[in-house]
Design a protein around this nucleic acid. Structure first.
Length: 191
DNA sequence: TTCGCGATGGCCT
DNA sequence: GGCCATCGCGAAA
């Protein structure tokens, strides 16, 4: 049986959590049906100085969940149309989260082009994740959204580290290698 | 194959 | 009023 990831998993350094989440399963229950999606790409955002992070200008109504303790969701809208899913990490009052950028549904039904989870805005659409799921606990199953441990060991050399996507404005933080993905997976959002 | 761009709305200055 | 942690389309090549 797959194991639910415990709360204390998230209360650790963001970049560690971002890498450990690769190979784990994002599980969503929709109308009583369970859909499992393996996480294949993540990005870390943390601290006050990183201009790419929403928290770089202090706490606001939007980014407030980033300041909560690890293990809850931070869902927000970009470009007026896409909901992006983040998992909050680290301790309370320190702003940090991991963006889930791509998932893989080992599932025939999800093999058509518009049902691949190969982008942060696409996987949320397929899994019906929107801002109503903001600020929810993901270490229990009550909100019909949770995370399960990987069913195999992910080796260090399977993880590719590179710069994050879509944040060219972030100055010295633009090129930080805080994006991680599984090297052999075809569902990552960009090369 | 890659590139250019429009859609679309909330958030921050 | 400007700016996005994006996507999919159609044109060019």
């Amino acid at each position: 049986m797959p194991k639910l990831i415990p709360k204390n998993f998230y209360n650790r350094p963001t970049l560690q959590v971002a890498q450990d989440l690769l190979g784990c399963f994002l599980v969503r229950k929709i109308n009583g049906e369970i859909v499992r999606a393996m996480i294949v790409e993540t990005e870390g955002y943390f601290g006050y100085k990183d201009k790419a992070s929403h928290a770089s200008r202090g706490k606001t109504d939007r980014n407030e969940p980033m300041f909560w303790e690890g293990g809850i969701t931070y869902v927000y809208l970009v470009y007026g149309m896409h909901s992006l899913l983040n998992i909050v990490t680290e301790k309370e009052n320190y702003p940090a989260a991991v963006l889930i950028r791509a998932v893989d549904f080992n599932w025939e039904e999800f093999s058509s082009n518009d049902k691949k989870g190969n982008g942060p805005g696409k996987l949320t659409k397929i899994l019906e994740i929107d801002r109503t799921l903001n600020k929810q606990k993901i270490y229990n199953k009550k909100n019909n959204l949770w995370l399960e441990e990987s069913i195999r060991d992910i080796k260090k050399n399977e993880i590719v580290k590179t710069k994050r996507v879509g944040i060219d404005y972030a100055g010295e933080y633009r090129d930080k290698p805080w994006r991680f993905y599984l090297a052999d997976n075809k569902n990552v959002s960009k090369k």
